[in-house]
Design a protein around this nucleic acid. Sequence first.
DNA 1: GGCATTCATGAGTTTTACTCATAATTAAAA
DNA 2: TTTTAATTATGAGTAAAACTCATGAATGCC
Lengths: 298, 298
Amino acid sequence: MARIERMHLEIVRAIHTQGSVTSAADSLHVTQSALSHSIRKLEDNFNLKIWRRDGKQMHLTQGGEHLLSIANRVLPQLERAEAQLQQFAKGERGTLRVGMECHPCYQWLLKVASPFLRSWPNVDLDVNQKFAFGGVEALYNQDIDVLITPDPLKKLKGLVFEPVFDYEQVLVVNDSHPLHNQDHIVPKQLANEVLITYPVPVERLDVFSLFLTPSGILPKQHKLMETTEMMLQMVACGRGVAALPRWLVIEQQDHFPLVPVKLGKHGIKKKLHLGMRKRDIDIDYIASFIELSRLIQI
Amino acid sequence: MARIERMHLEIVRAIHTQGSVTSAADSLHVTQSALSHSIRKLEDNFNLKIWRRDGKQMHLTQGGEHLLSIANRVLPQLERAEAQLQQFAKGERGTLRVGMECHPCYQWLLKVASPFLRSWPNVDLDVNQKFAFGGVEALYNQDIDVLITPDPLKKLKGLVFEPVFDYEQVLVVNDSHPLHNQDHIVPKQLANEVLITYPVPVERLDVFSLFLTPSGILPKQHKLMETTEMMLQMVACGRGVAALPRWLVIEQQDHFPLVPVKLGKHGIKKKLHLGMRKRDIDIDYIASFIELSRLIQI
DNA sequence: GGCATTCATGAGTTTTACTCATAATTAAAA
DNA sequence: TTTTAATTATGAGTAAAACTCATGAATGCC
């Protein structure tokens, strides 16, 4: 059974646009002889005359016209595809799949996203907040390419974690709250507060693991809230306090009457890290993403 | 610059659907080694990893996924095209372009058209009444494949004419016309009539060339009319007489009060011929068209 | 009729693709 | 852990295909 190869389509197109086998051969960078052999074989394969020999001219038969219409439809698709593969090869095209292990990371990612998308017009950005397993597993499983996390797991085979952003985790209170003008607070000052956090295990909440838990003190009440927006609304209305990055609080002070308060004498200092597979660090748009991440000033 | 060949798309698709290089090689009827060499060359050509080697499994990279989506789009187009070319080769597909040199031929063609289209579902029918040159030139120029004509030009190089249908050219008059009950008429009986004909040179009108002109007699008036329908309307209203095939008059007697009258003692006997290029007589649907033409009984 | 142009063909050569044999790697079984 | 079975990778040799060169045949033009 005969197969239509790409070259067949190129030949049909070239002979049609060039008007003769000889000049088509030139345009395809082969000899007239080679092309003549090729068209003979093509016609033999399909047992179908593609061209009519009218004197020294060649004209397409009905079957040939049909093949030409296929060529004009299919060849541009292949040519476009080649250009796109070149872009993949040069790292100019792809999808950067980003995973996040902390809720406020999303606010930070938004800052990186727009300069990134502007410099890589053919690279898409996929954001993933929920993985089937943990962020590291998602990296290993190729579900994501970059993991944004405040808690890097160093020394994992095949992975690297890069610090990109320093921030301080602070308590956020409404501007008429009793704690609003404290330089810093100690754990027992939260004993009578309603503490609002994201709905994740307490081990993953710095305000617990680094502040409350060591002292054995618990807040009066622990409320869970999905979104940062809603959390801030609640705090602004005096319905509780929360722990968030300082830069996020500062930024929201335009919209809400909020005050950041240091947690402990020295504050809770954190670093946002980007994790990725070692083999991916050469991919241009991934390297660029890391670089842009470091440049973001908040 | 690297080219995407059809085989590359087949390889990407086969490895993806079969799940391994080894079984993909089987499905493509080559050895595992050949396929391994091919994929290496493909990746080298584009300088792009298409697959990730995870242990003994191969998984598509982003570029590979993209190539797969191209394969899934392009390959079915090629496969459909191949099937269509097979149909062209077997003479099951094409366009039969029919030209006509006589106006009432069209009424006759309509009778052949429907059984033809029913037996050749993939063959189109193109009808052409006006050619830049004559019908024979249209055959030579490949503008038409079949010429329907009552006046065949035998012995033309590369062409054949086949008689397919006998008919008699008769005078048609309204049923209250003075001539309506004549067995036949002689030329001078038209001397006081209004004769309605198609707008073509009188040499091509049988009623002139075979009846009036030899006797030197002319009708009282010669009116031109484009369509058969309108001609019959005029005759039915007693505004003139016309010359048409007898079968056409008989057929229209349901709708119009018409009577056919023989032209001359022996009538004008004509044959409809189909002309075509000799090289085309083997094309199945053209042979079939001729055969169906002979079967039409009117 | 010569002359230039175009396509076709056969023989020989180059290039490409393929196979065979085997190594290397990996996952699972013993 | 070692064995075993399965998978991909590689190198060398071979088969097939594509191409070139030289030339023939047909056509259209001056």
